Simulated assay, not measured.
Amino acid sequence: MGTQNPSAPPRAHVRVAGNKHPNRTPRTGGLQHDNTRHTTRFVVIGNHLAQHPELSLLAIGLGTHLQSLPKGAPADIKTLAARFPEGATRIAAALRELEAHGYLRRERVRTSSGRIVTRTISCNQPAAVRQRTEQPCRESTPSAPRKQPARKALPAVPRPAYSGPGLLQAATDLLADLRRHDSRLLLSADDTAHLAPGVAAWLEREVTPAAVRRALTADLPPEGLRRPAALLAHRLASQLPPPAPFRARTTAPPPVRHPLRNCDGCDRAFRAPTPTTHCRDCRTDLQEAA
């Protein structure tokens, strides 16, 4: 058999890869690193920023500088232009690059004093921020509707002994007018209907509307009212005055009706006590004649 000059090698050759290839000379140039581990005053910068393929070198350097600043440090164009020699125009362009790629955000917020300021936010991982904002959109199953907590019932209020329509209407008008004295006492229609019998009980006990209003609006807590109707219901029940004192009705004596008699002078009928014999006109004439 012809086996002296076989066409296939007796064993497979192993490919030599990397710098071990016999025909490749080792690289002696290029960048070399002489690193020392940082223990203080350092910032971690991701390669996605340091080696970003689309950002300019100025934008990469400015993004690194912003991430190294402490919280609350000024980061406006005027401050950065005073810090670096590139000038306001180039720094503004670099900030726009960082903003376009998600490394920078600018928000306008209102302070507690009412002033509107611009807040600069440096983001070290824009991809993670995008994942957090897109996560709710990926949920296909709708979330179950949140069950509203049951509203706590208002405290009970006193009831009048005789609740006429006029008394309840006066109580309703008094409650609706409370918001003119304190804007926090704006009541709903249901709360007003619940409190009206309590106010009517006060009015039934001869308490004036002004006195009821003072009792409900005096010494309100300065920190605010979570449930003004509950506070009013508590005051109506706890500060209910006693009934008005009983006043016996004084009966006037019946009028005295004198008997009819005829005047001795003009013979006209008139009523007068027994000793009188002349009417009023005749008595006047007699007095003038005398």
Rank of each mutant, 00 (worst) to 15 (best):
T3L: 10
R15P: 14
A17T: 10
G18H: 07
H21P: 06
R24Q: 06
T28C: 02
H33A: 14
H38V: 03
I45C: 01
I60A: 02
G61S: 15
G63L: 00
G63W: 00
H65E: 15
Q67M: 09
A75D: 08
A75T: 07
T79L: 02
A82N: 13
R90E: 12
I91T: 12
R96P: 06
E99D: 13
R106Y: 10
T111R: 15
G114I: 04
N124E: 08
Q125D: 15
V129P: 00
Q131C: 01
Q135K: 10
E139Y: 02
P142R: 08
P149A: 15
A153M: 05
L154G: 05
A156I: 00
Y162M: 09
T172E: 15
D173P: 00
R184F: 07
A193W: 02
P197C: 09
G198L: 05
A200Y: 02
R205L: 07
D219Q: 08
L220M: 10
G224Q: 13
L225F: 03
L225V: 12
A230P: 10
L231W: 06
H234P: 00
A252F: 08
V256N: 09
L260T: 07
L260D: 11
R261G: 05
D267H: 15
T277S: 10
R280E: 14
D281P: 03
E288Q: 14
A289R: 04
